[in-house]
Design a protein around this nucleic acid. Structure first.
Lengths: 348, 348
DNA sequence: TTGTACGCGTTATCAA
DNA sequence: TTGATAACGCGTACAA
């Protein structure tokens, strides 16, 4: 009923022990006699003390138990993608045993006063899909001496990276299509840069988003002249749009489509059905990611299976390592080719 | 190059001012002469000082700039739902001007040592979909004297709530169907409790999840005897499963389906197509939420439109109010009925 | 096993 | 406009 919240000093006084003893009872760092422990915990409940103030504890310890996750876009956009969702789960799971939680931060805070890596008590930072706007966060994190991990992006120097063999994997899928006899193949890509909305990719266009460039390179390793249509991001709807473009002219449509994500592939398939084409009899479609796509059920995509949750876990492990002062490992994950029922031999 | 990071005291010394002056230069709370300011900022850059340590600042200020968001399930599960995604965006947007970010916390930490509201320096807590496991978090938040806001859930007492007129809205949709002449109507519901996996809902079954119960009540206001099939959550796939059950027997299938979410409705429509039924000629389907469903494009759902982003913003505003010591407002949001092309008159 | 003493890095308050 | 002082609440050497 007092105006002020109880502190550990109050508890100690109430229990007639020293503050350090009371502290030890809560932290468990040092053995304490049962009698003392009980006295302290009872005093605590009597005073309504719920444990050390996390703010004070984190100052004292030099650790807050918070890992900042810097995302480039809105949460809605980010989490639309099952790959990101699973990755975040893996990340959360991997840092949880260290008592750490994930703090979401936007990289481009057009909002005045918005929280940043400079203002918020984080122990480490994870950057997702490191492109231009994220570089700034990288800078500030470096300045503050924060441990940093980058997922699917190039942070240059000695920052540990969690990467995927995008190019090699995509090449495998392309080779699979070539093996089936396809020669007219189109690529439906993820975003090519933070700003662009989509459209045909010119031969000399610069692609600033690594994933997109790498997967496209992989496809072009097999089909150097394959036309590529960029979307505004990984979603079924974007795949539908792209598919409609590809299948608009029945005379000149591709016989196979390499989509850079499973969501896009699902959309392309939908567009194919709209256009009266059967998959895979009339047109083959490959995806990328190997994640469950909500609503795709009759089909099982031919795709490259990655393990997004493991990727998140690896990022978490790297964070944990850096917090422990150990050297974090960069990790290159490998995709597995999985043949589903969305690819088949060249028609006719 | 010293081993230790520079503190504001170092900067003050280097600039030959007092620590408090240096502090004020960074916080901007008090006017400072230009000359002094420059001296301080220059000293700071010389020393590689990037601003006050957030941990120390938050201890001193008694505020960390972190809002804990307690979620019941995995992130993957939570963010599968566009309603939740948009809500989180609104929430993030509303607390950002206060320099606050969102920290994700799981309510049922089976992981040892996982972060909780007790261990993490949060200024306030937002509970999403407050059911049984969340009650515990509620308890601890109360104990710690944290401001709490509950979204779509009942926290009992004086906790501000962000609610939706679920029952009334659902009743409107049901009435719409009745107006079209439908009498054989089935309901496809969201989860009925944290644990249950789905199945026909017995008449006397207890439904612990508020949203589900309220929407079902609304449907039953018009169709008291409508059978209800529970799913394991809001997703297209779950809707497909439910739809297959409903349409399994051509002789006894409903002519209209009330789905408790747009995702479920999308799945039901997919199942209807599978079963060779046309929507809305053979079967009418209503949704709930009015959110863009990725991959639904040919259809426009007849649904109840809510404003999830606003809901999030309202929660954020409530948090902000409580942090300012003002009384937070509970808000009841209202859905709007929107007729799409998935409902039509009773066939024959 | 318990207690003493100190400082973690800031910032609010007040006086100059 | 600037400076001195005193917390904020805790953890941890170290000594007893």
């Amino acid at each position: 009923m007092t105006s002020r919240r109880a502190t550990i000093a109050d508890v100690a006084r109430e229990a007639a022990v020293s503050p350090s003893t009371a502290s030890v009872v809560f932290s468990g760092k040092t053995p304490v006699s049962d009698a003392t422990r009980r006295r302290v915990t009872e005093a605590a409940t009597r005073l309504g003390y719920t444990g050390p103030d996390p703010r004070a504890a984190s100052l004292r310890r030099g650790r807050s138990g918070i890992v900042g996750v810097v995302v480039g876009s809105t949460l809605n956009h980010l989490f639309l993608d099952p790959v990101q969702r699973l990755m975040m789960d893996g990340l959360a799971e991997a840092v949880a045993p260290f008592g750490a939680g994930l703090l979401l931060l936007r990289s481009s805070p057009e909002i005045e006063n918005a929280p940043t890596l400079l203002t918020v008590p984080v122990d480490a930072a994870v950057l997702i899909g490191c492109d231009a706007p994220l570089r700034a966060s990288l800078e500030t994190a470096h300045l503050r001496g924060l441990p940093i991990v980058v997922i699917e992006g190039d942070a240059g120097d000695d920052v540990p990276r969690i990467l995927l063999d995008n190019r090699e994997a995509q090449r495998t899928a392309a080779a699979h299509l070539r093996g089936l006899g396809h020669t007219d193949v189109a690529v439906v890509t993820l975003r090519t840069s933070a700003a662009v909305a989509g459209g045909w990719i010119e031969p000399d266009a610069e692609i600033t988003i690594d994933v997109t460039r790498e997967r496209l390179d992989g496809a072009r390793d097999v089909y150097p002249d394959a036309p590529a249509l960029a979307t505004a991001g990984s979603s079924i709807d974007q795949g539908v749009f792209a598919g409609r473009v590809l299948f608009a002219d029945p005379e000149r449509r591709p016989t196979a489509v390499i989509a850079q994500s499973d969501l896009l592939a699902a959309g392309v398939i939908r567009a194919a059905e709209e256009a009266g084409l059967r998959v895979p009899e009339d047109v083959s479609v490959t995806g990328f990611d190997g994640v469950p796509v909500d609503g795709l059920s009759p089909y099982e995509l031919t795709t490259l299976v990655q393990a997004p949750t493991d990727k998140g876990r690896a990022a978490g492990a790297a964070v944990a390592a850096m917090l422990d002062g150990r050297a974090p490992a960069s990790v290159l994950f490998t995709c597995t080719f999985r043949e589903g029922n969305t690819t088949g031999p060249l028609p006719r």
